[in-house]
Design a protein around this nucleic acid. Structure first.
Length: 677
RNA sequence: GGCGAGAUAGCUCAGCUGGUUAGAGCGCAUGAUUCAUAAUCAUGAGGUCCCGGGUUCAAUUCCCGGUCUCGCUACCA
């Protein structure tokens, strides 16, 4: 492997429209912090970069919902997330933000540079424009009738009722969500990065030269490259973001995917005047820690941008993790199915390391993993308390008891003693080997091996028995045990920084560098130790049960402000309402339409006829379960052919804030064909 | 529909370029021990390595087909 002079570690920029949860920590920030701490302990030249990603449409939408400015939103979450990281001991050298002046300047310059080098394609397209508000409308700002299911509050990018992905021009009766007015099509210019031009380069660089990347990363890149790359727009018509620094580009900002990765560069600039050394010297090793949802951006798109610019280095590795599930279900912000970091910090004060430990030991490195509170408890009680904490405690307490807390002198080392101490450098070697390959859970387990070794040593030597016959021998035994403990405090430092600091406090030693791990006399004979306390405490069943109960009750009364109900529609008159023929009906037959995910073909009895309706509800209801079901139907909706089947009318359902569909059903006793008014 | 990843002990996972008595941690059982937060140590039980074919002297490992889970993407327009 190539030798590098320095390392630049980046961690995915969290999007500043919500708080962080354990999935973020497990997937990205715990591994990146362990890695960075490890390099720092080695005395390597390393910096760790992160910050808030503060642009993009979801932030502006959230701001609008809450009636405050986008800046207020990002200020709130930037502060919240920055604090959470600090409290968990995730030590970034800088936690910057993409709304900072340095970032604006960096991103503009980056764009301008590519622009001047003719690296972009300029295209004119027609886009919806809100004349009242005087701005172009992002897809999400346009609502209208879904051409597929007739849902009237479909967004310009997707109909949330039938899940169809849309382009704004597909919508019937489009309206602006800003002013409610009817938008007009207007020509607008955008710039595109022609990714396909970089395809040959990317193929060589990734598929030939980076076969060592994790299989999930390599596989996804290969998939993209094999399918062929397309030009990607780098600008959007939006107010919130970095303005496109070109004449005549008013109201246009850099598209967030282009903007965000440059955030790594601007953060580095903000950190050090030496930033170019980290980004442009081929002797720097660049590592991106991300989650799997970010793979293409960091492995294909951002490298293409950097390559287009020309003077930047490219990532040497992108150790992307998979996703963490929670108690058997996907973590979901909108359903509030998550363990939020700010809440954990409040409810488990002083247990930051416990969560770090559990998330590392069970990190989703090769596949999605499940976090359960029970596992959290058992790892704490059976591993941190019973193995690590207990060993340290035994060694320290025995030393207090027999030698008043002074490190006894090792007089006569047996071969077994020597052999035990010689295990330390080999454990260190295995930990290093795993960390170098980004195998953090393996590294952690190897490191725990040292604590296990310590327990084993004490059990075999039985100093509490030997003390009665041969106190001299006990000196050596405890000396060995204490040397193991002090080595442990360095070896475990990247994983459990708070606890190891505490441990060094008990041992009354300063921070030590990684290179000293394996030395047999880190503690000199006669050195005075401090009174020990417990490193970890057991966690009771009730604490765990409380957390599980909290999780489930959150889900039940799911009325968080996260996802607001759809805004009110413009008024209609009574005549308009009367035009709609809504009837009660019964489902006579239902079958899946083959090769579709969502469509069911329904046969309905409306009282006055029997008809076929195609409905996008297969994701929620099975065909068998809905036969005989009473429903409401909009009977006079103009027929539409979907998948070659003529659909006459539309089944009415209610959509809750989760996007889940609920029946709007007439009472069981109602006959078919009753008019709804 | 296309693509990617995963499927190995009760649980969570390792097993690189084919040959191992198929491993680890936790859990479980038995025994030892009592310095330690009823913590520790030893021993042990537990696996048709998702299913079906194929290549091979030999397949958990390679190839083909299938099933299930997760993700990306397309279609449904």
């Amino acid at each position: 492997m190539k030798k590098y002079k320095r390392t630049l570690v980046t961690s995915a920029l969290p999007y500043a429209n919500g708080p962080l949860h354990i999935g973020h920590l497990a997937g990205v920030y715990v591994p990146s912090d362990i890695y960075t701490r490890y390099l720092r302990l080695q005395g390597a030249d390393v910096i760790s970069i992160c910050g808030s990603d503060e642009h993009g449409v979801p932030i502006t939408l959230k701001a609008r919902q809450e009636g405050i400015s986008p800046q207020a939103i990002v200020d709130r979450y930037h502060t919240l997330n920055k604090t959470a990281f600090e409290q968990f001991g995730i030590t970034f050298d800088i936690y910057a933000r993409t709304s900072s002046p340095v970032h604006y300047e960096t991103a503009s310059a980056f764009f301008l540079n590519l622009y001047n080098k003719n690296k972009f394609i300029e295209k004119t397209t027609e886009q919806y424009y809100d004349e009242e508000a005087g701005q172009f409308l992002a897809d999400r700002y346009i609502m209208g009738t879904c051409p597929s299911c007739g849902y009237e509050s479909a967004y310009g990018d997707q109909c949330e009722r039938c899940g169809t992905s849309l382009s704004p021009t597909d919508l019937k009766n489009p309206r602006s969500t800003i002013s409610g007015s009817k938008p007009v099509l207007k020509k607008t210019n955008h710039w595109f990065l022609p990714l396909e031009e970089y395809e040959p380069f990317l193929k060589t660089w990734i598929l030939e030269e980076h076969k060592e990347w994790k299989t999930n990363v390599y596989g996804q890149c290969k998939s993209w490259l094999d399918q062929g790359l397309q030009p990607r727009a780098v600008s959007r018509d939006l107010e919130w973001g970095v303005p496109v620094p070109v004449e005549g580009a008013r109201g246009k900002v850099l598209y967030v995917w282009f903007d965000a990765p440059i955030g790594y560069i601007s953060a580095t600039r903000e950190l050090t005047p030496d930033w170019e050394k980290y980004w442009k010297d081929p002797e720097t090793r660049l590592i991106h820690f991300i989650g799997k949802d970010n793979i293409v951006f960091h492995c294909i798109i951002f490298p293409a941008m950097l390559r287009a610019e020309g003077s930047y280095i490219l990532p040497d590795n992108v150790p992307a993790n998979e996703f963490l599930n929670l108690e058997g279900n996907k973590i979901s912000t909108s359903r509030n199915w998550a363990v939020w970091l700010h809440e954990y910090l409040r409810e488990f004060p002083g247990k930051e390391d416990v969560l770090r430990y559990v998330l590392c030991a069970n990190a989703p490195e090769a596949k999605d993993n499940d976090f359960t509170w029970k596992d959290f408890q058992s790892r704490n009680n059976n591993e941190l308390v019973a193995v690590l904490g207990n060993f340290v405690h035994r060694a320290l307490v025995l030393t207090q008891k027999y030698f008043d807390g002074r490190v006894p002198v090792a007089t006569n080392m047996t071969t077994n003693d020597k052999h035990t101490l010689e295990e330390i450098p080999s454990i260190r070697g295995r930990v290093e080997n795993s960390l170098d390959l980004f195998r953090f859970r393996e590294a952690l387990n190897e490191a725990m091996g040292l604590a296990r070794l310590g327990n084993k040593y004490l059990a075999e030597q039985e100093p509490w028995i030997v003390i009665k016959t041969d106190p001299e021998r006990v000196k050596t035994i405890l000396n060995v045990a204490l040397q193991i403990a002090v080595n442990l405090s360095v070896l475990m430092e990247p994983f459990l920084p708070f606890s190891m600091k505490k441990l060094r406090g008990f041992l009354n030693v300063d921070n030590m560098v990684w290179d000293r791990i394996g030395e047999k006399d880190l503690l000199a004979a006669g050195h005075q130790l401090n009174k020990p306390e417990l490193l970890f405490e057991k966690i009771d069943d009730e604490v765990i049960e409380k957390q599980v109960a909290k999780l489930h009750s959150n889900r039940l009364n799911n009325n968080r402000p996260g996802k607001a109900v759809a805004p009110a529609k413009p008024p209609v008159n009574y005549d308009d309402f009367l035009k709609m023929d809504i009837r009660t009906a019964t489902i006579l037959k239902a079958e899946r339409i083959p090769k579709t995910d969502k469509l069911l073909k329904l046969k309905l009895d409306t009282g006055f006829d029997q008809r076929v309706v195609v409905s996008g509800i297969a994701g929620f209801f099975s065909a068998e379960s809905i036969v005989g079901k009473k429903v409401l139907i909009l009977a006079n909706l103009e027929p539409r052919t979907i998948r070659g089947i003529e659909s006459k009318g539309m089944i009415l359902t209610a959509e809750d804030t989760d996007g889940k569909l609920l029946w709007i059903a007439p009472d069981e006793t109602t006959g078919n064909g009753s008019v709804v008014k």
